[in-house]
Design a protein around this nucleic acid. Sequence first.
DNA 1: ACAAAAGTGTTGCGCGTACACCCATGT
DNA 2: ACATGGGTGTACGCGCAACACTTTTGT
Lengths: 281, 281
Amino acid sequence: MTGPDNLSQSPTVNRDEHDDSENGSVTLAVSTVILALRKKEGESQSSLWLPLVRRLREPYKGQWALPGGPLPSDLSLEQAAGSTLKRATGLVPGYLEQLYAFGDVLRTPDHHVKRDGGPLTVPAADEAPANRTVSVVYWASIPATEVSRTRVHENIRWFPLDELPVLAFDHNEIIEYAKYRLQNKVEYSRIAHSFLGEEFTLAQLREVYEAILERPLDPANFRRQIAASKSIIDTGRRVEGTRHRPPRLYRYDHSQAFSDQGPLGMYRAAEHAKAEGSKTQ
Amino acid sequence: MTGPDNLSQSPTVNRDEHDDSENGSVTLAVSTVILALRKKEGESQSSLWLPLVRRLREPYKGQWALPGGPLPSDLSLEQAAGSTLKRATGLVPGYLEQLYAFGDVLRTPDHHVKRDGGPLTVPAADEAPANRTVSVVYWASIPATEVSRTRVHENIRWFPLDELPVLAFDHNEIIEYAKYRLQNKVEYSRIAHSFLGEEFTLAQLREVYEAILERPLDPANFRRQIAASKSIIDTGRRVEGTRHRPPRLYRYDHSQAFSDQGPLGMYRAAEHAKAEGSKTQ
DNA sequence: ACAAAAGTGTTGCGCGTACACCCATGT
DNA sequence: ACATGGGTGTACGCGCAACACTTTTGT
């Protein structure tokens, strides 16, 4: 299948990641899917919402898109995502993680306009796009306590995840993937806490799970699962003023490890331990 | 925490991913962690190996590094990873998936030289690196049937994953993360098959799992687990010439869905179904 | 007293693990 | 016949889902 003539290409073997040659017109951008829990008008159950930014330029002028921008050369990818987040919402995230790097040639606006519904095809070499963009996309969660403080801006609006308009670029698919990843992650990790404030009741935590997984959970079994994971600590205090038995208040146990946060997990875990004064591993 | 003066920065809100301004000297590269099963000299058990490329330039001249190079402007990230793979090994991968986008400012060679073992620190604004590189890293598996046909090249060498030298850049950490991701994935997905050829025995498949997970598995239970997953089909034929009961030959059932392959999973699944003539969903 | 949600107890099922045991082949 | 790995049967334990039941508050 691969003949010996491959050896004739061997000069390219040693082109490495710090070689600038042939690095055409590729732009590197960072966008963020910012997720938070909110209630829709008149509903009692929370659901996932996210802020979008209206585009003021072509292409896709006037349509909504994920907040983002080109990578500043003095920031890491994650720092850039965090700065985007701050610009778009003014809020502090509870969690931030890389989602995926999108780099299909077809993402460029030209091709999007051209193919209008037709099948996906690999572009011929001679029609290489002039304006190629690779986006590294992050996703973030916003604690419910922060959400109310969202800054208001004419060109920024929050949408329910299940009532999105048609967005610019491939942003609908990206958000769909973010939701998929979050649904997976919530089952084996402990991100759910990052959608809440410092203290919360079990019912509130369960509501986070239910909003993300889009199905009701048994309160009794949920309680035991969370207890078994040892991820929360009883503060001893309770919420009063409800018209039923007052629920306990818990807080997240930061001393417990978090599981996969990408390759930098260990560094961050170490920083956490330092900040908390308790060390793991 | 974030005052109202944030609004004064609002002009930046609408900088989007197709805005070229302020996109300094950031280079975009694609590298690939290429994994295959091999036996070490004199051992009967297989283990994970990968090919590395010797650097012919500074920085890290003479040291080993992941195969890769700058992203050609006419290729998608995945295509670039595949082309790297072909250049480095001449072989066809069984599986290819995005691992992570590495974009820390500290990855640049200058900073690596500077910090020699010291604590990680964020660089001051005035010492922004001149040569910033973001790497999108993929990982690939090579079927055992292909491995023997590896092309020989002076500056390419295969190493056992657990006997790596000190590599260029942060490539040791990247490979460690690839291994971690593979170990996770092998438990809930069906990638293991991609390390084998079209037909294989259960013992061979089990050997893949054992090499990846680095622990022995019970043959009896392994058989039932795989059978329950319905991922393989009995070809009816057997391997003869062994000095014991002849094992059945199986092949992978491509008609079954694969689970998470990143956001493009659905597209690829659709292509697969088309190629196989059987459709799911 | 009653509603409503907090919180506990109990049971059954499925799955992974451990391990005893039989099967088929080459030497 | 016997060694060797292929392949089957069985039993235990844990974790999860279902759901009945008790507790504690406000009205």
